[in-house]
Design a protein around this nucleic acid. Structure first.
Lengths: 206, 206
DNA sequence: GAAAATATAGGTGTAACTACCCAATTTTAT
DNA sequence: ATAAAATTGGGTAGTTACACCTATATTTTC
């Protein structure tokens, strides 16, 4: 019998997971929480075998919560849940100790499989995501932006010109131009439009 | 007794809605569908009073389906369901005849209220969305892009230069430049970065 | 402490974008 | 049928971005 706790601020999702898991005799949903704080309180009282953890939650988000849980209760196996597959979030959750990662459009079968897999201590990554992660791994060296580059990329997406960025950061125009060119090369895009798209999808802005 | 049908490709959401609505004696979930096509087949056999319709679905999406349903079965009250509040989608769904609009983070109470409201023929818009719609209404005149402008905006976000766009659309470079300038003015942004941001947040790309 | 990576800034040139004009034609709406 | 809006294209000018170099501090990393 696997004891499962769920933390998700969406009532609909919470109920859906409960209903699906109720059909399985070897899985028991012992606790449900609507946010990260009440989850942390609850865990102090009792710990489940497996924790389904939503990433987007008001207050403490899933990434923060995962870090706390893995430190205080390393024996709890965590599965991250999300409706959007933003790679940077996936990576962060895995770094924080999540054993599994699921999109909310997963089928009941996949869901159950994931719970059983992480319960044994193995990792479970939803197929479309693991493929993306592998692809990302091979191109990550070229995608690792420095602090300054991120700073400048952010200002670019905020519609500033190179000159404005230079003034704001007390740099030469040339320096900013160089950083911008390096960004274009590292991110393998052609122009500002490409930079902004990547900045948004990587969660650097907005 | 209100008969409700649900169409959503997410099993978790489907189960969640069923579980929540099962608690209410005057609401009965008569049919559930995992995609638009099976929904349309099912409706030919019998029609519910209220239809909960997901927007993002594989195959026919919610917007297409809503158009078809409202023509064939105008007596079915539709509520659009989505996890992201993209204004342009809200507007389209309402144009297609949806009486209600809900985000998937809605509470069970809101959900039930929405179903009961549209069943009487009244409109139900989830509060955060209706506020946005009102705000949008006052600024919409300046934000209403023409077909050509949208086309060009999309090509800009795909990293094409004006010259490339001109070649692709068999236009003069000047024409494209003019459209681009009009876009900058209409959307009240300063440069390409601003254009791309709006294009993404309005769901024109990606 | 040495090596690698990062941040800085300059040179030079071209391509692309932005900011104003104006006007003819076609499409859409009333 | 007429007015309004959209599409097309041109003129002129200035600014900004992009490409491809070199080079020296400074910081990080091992």
């Amino acid at each position: 019998m696997i004891n499962v706790a769920i933390a998700d601020d969406h009532s609909i999702v919470l109920n859906g997971l409960q209903k699906i898991l109720a059909l399985h005799p070897d899985i028991k949903v012992t606790d449900v929480y609507l946010n990260g704080d009440s989850l942390l309180e609850g865990l102090d009282v009792k710990q489940p075998d497996v924790l389904l953890l939503d990433i987007q939650m008001p207050g403490k988000n899933g990434i923060e919560v995962a870090g706390i849980v893995s430190k205080k209760f390393p024996e709890v196996k965590m599965i991250a849940l999300t409706n959007v597959d933003i790679l940077i979030q996936v990576k962060k959750m895995l770094q924080k100790g999540c054993l599994g990662y699921l999109l909310k459009d997963a089928s009941p079968e996949i869901l159950v499989e994931a719970i059983k897999t992480v319960h044994t201590g193995e990792q479970f990554l939803y197929e479309p995501l693991s493929r993306q992660l592998v692809n990302n791994f091979f191109s990550q060296n070229s995608k690792q932006l420095t602090r300054r580059e991120k700073e400048i990329l952010q200002l670019i997406t905020e519609e500033h010109t190179n000159q404005e960025i230079a003034d704001k950061l007390f740099l030469s125009l040339r320096t900013v131009e160089n950083h911008r060119n390096n960004l274009l090369q590292k991110l393998d895009v052609k122009n500002t439009a490409g930079l902004v798209k990547i900045a948004i999808q990587e969660g650097l802005v907005k």
